[in-house]
Design a protein around this nucleic acid. Structure first.
Lengths: 138, 138
DNA sequence: AATATCAATGCAATGGAAGTGCAATTACTG
DNA sequence: CAGTAATTGCACTTCCATTGCATTGATATT
């Protein structure tokens, strides 16, 4: 618990009750969550606060944004080998068409993508869609 | 010009002036366009009509949708080796962070993506971001 | 401990994109 | 040419993202 406070301090953002709660919520979830998910979990809090908290986390590389093609932005903690700061580009996400959940497959590296001459690759967003392990009955 | 009519007929959708114009517009553009782009090009026409026309094209595999991470859905014609019908999944798109344009790199194949056991991959969306050939001064 | 300062929060409102219902119009069929 | 079905235009709604401003809360200084 102290660990979260240390983390926030190391990122130079103030430690508040709200931020601790939201961080904990994200940490408990193993999947990427939408703002609505967070809203539902903290009905007492204001949407804007949650929004700005997540945005702050994003700026400070505490969470990263995921665009899984559902049209709704999702967020997930930058840990478990995510290494946003170092290789902030190689995001591999899996979106389940059945349960609609999106998970980060951080342990699976993205193969090198070749682009034509004249193009400069700075960043890769890769979303694989299909059926996740839970839904495939496995 | 007759070619477009033939195409529409072969897809079993009616040939209308609107559809011919929108198709021509998409064909002229070498990049993926948003609904707003189309709106700006056809200011006399109604948003809804344009929206539904594109949706119809999408259903009939005349255009495909692109989610390049800008949060706004883009569309591009399914030609030049796109082969939506056959391998409707292997979309490689390049989004330029400078000019904000998105192009289809259909000639560049996506390498095989491995997913963990229990996950079933049905579909892959890959967007590479960076600087395009026009903007790199090349 | 009181206060000044700046950040964080809550409320209200806005904007943009996506989507729907319905009436009017247009295209095809016989 | 009439009838049917699809297409178009208008109005409206919904949902998510975002901003302005006043208020509350936290940190630093005295």
């Amino acid at each position: 618990m102290q660990k979260i406070e240390k983390l926030l301090e190391s990122k130079n953002i103030r430690v508040t009750a709200m931020r601790l709660l939201i961080y904990k919520f994200l940490a408990e979830k193993q999947i990427a969550v939408t703002l609505s998910d967070i809203e539902n979990a903290f009905e007492k809090a204001d949407r804007t606060t949650l929004y700005r908290t997540v945005k702050t986390f994003e700026e400070k590389d505490i969470v990263h944004q995921i665009d899984d093609g559902t049209g709704i932005t999702k967020y997930a903690l930058c840990e478990n080998g995510c290494n946003c700061e170092i290789e902030r580009d190689l995001h591999l996400h899996f979106h389940c068409n059945n349960c609609n959940e999106t998970v980060c497959l951080t342990e699976h590296k993205i193969p090198q993508i070749k682009v034509p001459d004249g193009f400069v690759s700075e960043n890769v967003n890769l979303v694989v869609k299909g059926i996740c392990d839970k839904c495939s009955g496995q």
